[in-house]
Simulated assay, not measured.
Amino acid sequence: MTEHKLENATRPESPAGAEILGFRPLYRQVKEHFVRRLVDGVWSPGMALPSEGQLANEIGVSQGTVRKALDELAAENLLVRRQGRGTFVAEHDEQRILFQFFKLVSDDGVARFPDSRVLDIASEPADAAESAALNLQPDERVIRIRRIRSLGGKPLILETVSLPEQVFPGLQDSAVPNNLYSLFATRYGITVANARERLKAVALTAEQAAHLSVAAGTPALEIDRIALSLDGSAVERRLSLCLTEEAHYQSDLR
C-alpha cells in the first residue's frame, strides 16, 4: 500500500537539531513516521526495510533525512544496520536482551542469558502496586508469572512478572518461554522499546529465600522494572530479587 508523503516534506529542513518557531526538525517527524510503522506492525521484527532511497522517494524527503531518522532508531536498538545487507527491524533475540535489558552479570565478567523455571502463572486482580505501575483501572486483571532464573545452573533471581491481561489475553493458558519479549513481539505485536528501573537493597523473607535455597534475611538486590512499548505504554512490571554474592548489576553508561 502506498503511503502519503509527509505533509510538510517540502518545507526547508531546519539546521541540525534546531527547532524554529515550534517546528520539529524534519528528520524527527520522519522518525516518528517510522516508529508508527513499527507500532502498527507494518514493519515486523526481522523484516528488511526498503533502501534509504526508496523510503525517501516514498515519503517525499531527502535521503539524508531518512538516514538520520534511521540512525536514531538504530541507536535506540529498534533497527539493526547490517553491513552490505541493509537495515532490519530488530528482534528480541537473547543477544539483544542481554545487551539492552538484562544487567546481572556473573563476577567472572561473562555475560550470560539466564535460564528460567516457572513456579506459577495465573490471571488475578491487580494489586495497588501493579495498577499504579501499569496504569490500570481498579477492576482490571493481570497475568502474574513467578519464576526462578539461574546463571550457570545456580538460582540467583526470584522474578515476578505482571502483565495487563487485556494486552496479553490468553498468555496464561500456554507455555511460558524463557524469552518473554520475543513472545510479546511475535504473538501480540508488542515491542518492548525501553524500560525504567529502580534498585533497592532488601532482605529476603522466609518464603522468598526458600525459593532461592538461602537463609531467611539474606540480602538481595531488588530491581523494579517498568517496560514500555514503542508508543510509550507500560506493558510489563517485573520485580526481580537478585542474589549478588557471585554476581553484580552492570550498566554501561554512554
Rank of each mutant, 00 (worst) to 15 (best):
D93W: 11
G153A: 07
T2N: 15
S116A: 11
D127V: 00
L79R: 08
I59Q: 07
L38A: 08
F88D: 05
A209R: 13
A48H: 12
E245P: 07
P169T: 00
P12R: 14
R238I: 01
T191I: 12
L79E: 04
L156D: 01
N77W: 11
I20E: 15
F23K: 15
D252Y: 12
V235A: 05
T218D: 15
L183F: 04
L6F: 10
E246G: 06
A122V: 01
N77A: 09
F102V: 02
R96N: 06
I143V: 14
C242G: 02
K5T: 01
A195P: 02
L199W: 04
I59K: 10
L70W: 05
S162T: 00
L6R: 13
E52D: 12
V66T: 02
A129V: 00
M1R: 14
N135F: 13
A90K: 06
S44G: 03
E13Y: 04
A132L: 11
I223G: 08
E124L: 08
V105R: 14
H248T: 09
D252A: 09
A69G: 01
V35S: 13
R96Q: 10
F113D: 02
F99C: 07
E52T: 05
A209C: 11
R225I: 00
P15Q: 07
S251G: 04
I226G: 02
G170Y: 05
H33N: 14
G17W: 10
L158C: 08
S14C: 07
R141H: 10
R28A: 05
P138K: 02
L163Y: 06
R85I: 01
R24A: 15
V105E: 12
H4W: 12
R36F: 06
I223P: 13
L221G: 05
V89P: 13
A247I: 01
S116D: 09
P219S: 08
L243V: 01
R141A: 02
S123Q: 13
A234E: 14
G170S: 09
R67S: 06
G17T: 03
L49F: 08
E130S: 03
L55Q: 11
V167T: 15
A69D: 02
I97M: 13
E72V: 03
L221Y: 09
I223L: 11
